[in-house]
């Protein structure tokens, strides 16, 4: 009996908690499946778990958001899964640039990203060129080019997966500076950072968030940045634009809804993620990890995707990864 009363009391409290938001329009009625296009512990996964805690801490939603990692096939598994949840209002996904490249490289999946519901671009991650701090002879791009050229194909660039973002950037560097760096793929940016710090690799093109620990410890240093403007955290690393190479590259960190999501649900998630974007914790995270890119939503986000997809198609063709 006592148990029953307690249960009723809990149910009552929960009803009153969720009631006010229910007046404001559509709200999720069951836990929201938050698919992550990458494995547990990577950059995207960390961001999702941060978002999950921001939503829970500030009681922004009446239901929990449950991260589900589907990393298989460079995110192909996640894309197919969410594509199959067409018309579902309780499935959203956190994506990276594999959102463009995976459907391009695997047309058999039958996924068209134009079908997905644009919710919010939360940030764009940046890339820098890193070397070990013990390389006293390398302090700028000219030094780098000289040292890498001297070592020829024994210069090892560590990155995450063949034909990944890191591979695109390596190809650019090889082409622009006449180098023959050897690209060695590892699993995850953390591992890549470690290979550089342990001197098993000569350079990396990691995101700041992946290399930050070693940078702060003075083990690795940044030479140049693949951004439009210099990053506040790394004021001494010039952009490739300044160095005369017209090359910028970013990694999106974006929340996507299942195809055919209802208008009401779309508006709800757009409002929710706007609040998350503006929360103190997310802004702190952006500053700390040197993230760029403003909040993009709705049609603006869709046209950004279409533009980026075209850019990636050209890049993949140049690499010979697709025809």
């Amino acid at each position: 009996m006592v148990k029953k009363i307690t249960l009723l009391a809990i149910a009552g409290i929960m009803a009153t908690v969720s009631a006010p938001s229910a007046i404001a329009g559509w709200t999720p009625v069951k836990p929201v499946e938050f698919v992550v296009m990458a494995g547990k512990g990577g950059g995207a996964d960390k961001a999702v778990r941060l978002i999950q805690s921001i939503i829970a801490e500030n009681e922004m939603a009446p239901v929990p958001f449950t991260p589900v990692n589907k990393a298989g096939g460079s995110g192909a598994e996640a894309l197919v899964h969410v594509n199959g949840r067409s018309g579902n209002d309780h499935t959203i996904m956190f994506t990276l640039n594999s959102f463009y490249t995976t459907p391009l490289r695997q047309p058999k999946l039958g996924v068209d990203i134009a079908d997905f519901t644009p919710i919010a671009r939360m940030a764009e991650d940046t890339f820098l060129l890193w070397v070990h701090s013990d390389r006293k002879d390398i302090n700028n791009m000219a030094d780098f080019a000289k040292a890498a050229k001297a070592k020829g194909k024994d210069w090892i660039m560590a990155g995450t997966g063949k034909n990944s973002e890191d591979n695109l950037l390596t190809d650019f560097l090889n082409g622009a500076y006449g180098l023959q760096m050897k690209y060695v793929p590892y699993k995850g940016g953390g591992k890549v950072a470690k290979e550089l710090a342990g001197k098993n690799a000569d350079s990396t093109v990691n995101n700041p968030s992946e290399q930050l620990g070693f940078y702060e410890a003075g083990t690795t240093k940044a030479l140049a940045s693949f951004t439009d403007e210099r990053l506040p955290l790394f004021p001494n690393a010039p952009t490739f634009k300044e160095l005369g190479e017209d090359y910028v590259y970013y990694m999106q960190r974006t929340v996507v809804g299942a195809p055919g999501m209802s208008q009401e649900a779309t508006e709800y998630y757009q409002g929710l993620f706007k609040d998350v974007f503006n929360s103190k914790k997310w802004q702190e995270y952006r500053t700390k990890k040197s993230l760029q890119g403003d909040l993009l939503q709705g049609d603006a986000l869709m046209s950004y995707w279409m533009k980026e997809r075209d850019v990636h198609e050209v890049m993949l063709k140049n690499m010979g990864a697709i025809k």
Partner: peptide, 25 residues
Amino acid sequence: LGIPGSPTTAILLGGMVIWGLEPGP
């Protein structure tokens, strides 16, 4: 080193991000 030695520590690393700590040297 800020890199996970096991799948569980990979999640713990995510936790340190939430708490605003920078794992690493």
